[in-house]
């Protein structure tokens, strides 16, 4: 495999609710498998260290991003980039739904979920503070921006990452399945529609990683996917099945899409900024 291809490992994983120790053991096994199969990056879903339906457990499970508990990820990232999700104990004792990106033995990026869902079956605002920042960072395979679950449903956030020059959006999720009247879960179409639009019109790769398993009757769908810069879904994991799924991404397609369609060149970010400013008056 030459530099043109990036091998990506999606850990469509089932955490044990509220048991960080066991979850870290499970992560390590999968990461070692990823290293063995020569993946460059392995991505776990949202809140992969804890599970989703935490409620009061968030107070018991919050971790500082520099906690020694997380050391194994730092060490293992010498051999593979690692993306995990966890309950972050931030400054001023604020608790965030966060993502950590480890690379080359270091913590490369820490992203905090911006758009917490708080309606219907969701009550994240009761337990979490929302993040304040969004950024892209350099990796060995290009510029990466990260999102967490519902963030991905805001085109404005994907657009912001496009503006900041992202070649990749990595979005980690804990999306409960719902809607059983159609061929696939109705909830799945929402994620795939967004993924296809962002990847095509922002000429980038979109990697969406969702978890599986049930918690108190909520089923997490899986259906993780990768959409390429032409807006095509090139990989889709099965629903409900736990597994480590590998895909080779052709990195040359980003250059190709950027030069052919020139969306980035022809976008006028200053103009959009002015439009938004006008609208806020």
């Amino acid at each position: 495999m030459d530099d043109r291809y990036l091998k990506i490992a999606i850990a469509q994983y089932k955490p044990i609710l509220g048991d960080i120790k066991k979850n870290i053991e499970k992560h390590i096994k999968l990461i070692n498998k990823g290293i063995e199969d020569k993946a460059s990056v392995i991505i776990f879903p949202e809140l992969s260290l804890t599970g989703y339906l935490l409620k009061d457990l968030v107070y018991d499970l919050q971790l500082d991003k520099n906690s020694t508990v997380l050391e194994p990820f730092k060490e293992l990232s010498e051999k593979i980039d690692i993306v995990i999700g966890f309950v972050e104990k931030g400054e001023n004792r604020l608790i965030y739904n966060s993502l950590l990106y480890y690379s080359k033995g270091k913590l490369l990026s820490n992203y905090r979920k911006l758009r917490l869902p708080n309606f219907g079956m969701f009550e994240e605002k009761r337990f979490f503070k929302h993040g304040e920042d969004i950024s892209v960072f350099n990796t060995s395979y290009g510029k990466v921006g990260t999102l967490i679950c519902r963030d991905f449903l805001f085109p404005s956030l994907a657009y912001t990452l496009f503006y900041k020059g992202a070649d990749f959006i990595i979005s980690i999720s804990n999306s409960p399945l719902r809607g059983i009247e159609t061929k696939e879960y109705q909830s799945q179409a929402m994620w795939e529609d967004a993924g296809k639009v962002y990847s095509r019109f922002f000429s980038m790769n979109v990697v969406y990683v969702n978890r599986v398993g049930f918690e108190d009757g909520f089923g997490f769908a899986g259906g993780s996917f990768i959409a390429n810069p032409e807006g095509k879904i090139i990989f889709k994991a099965p629903f409900l099945e736990e597994g480590l799924y590998f895909t080779d991404i052709d990195l040359s397609l980003t250059d190709k899409a950027r030069s052919i369609y020139a969306y980035y060149r022809d976008e006028d970010f200053k103009q959009i900024k002015n439009f938004l400013n006008e609208g806020l008056k």
Binding site: I180, T182, G213
Partner: peptide
């Protein structure tokens, strides 16, 4: 009101298995 029975079957099999074995 019509369901996709195949999808429902698969989902409920996972649900029963998960919520019992865990």
């Amino acid at each position: 009101m019509n369901i996709n029975p195949e999808l429902v079957e698969r989902t409920l099999i996972h649900f029963i298995r998960d919520e019992i074995t865990k």
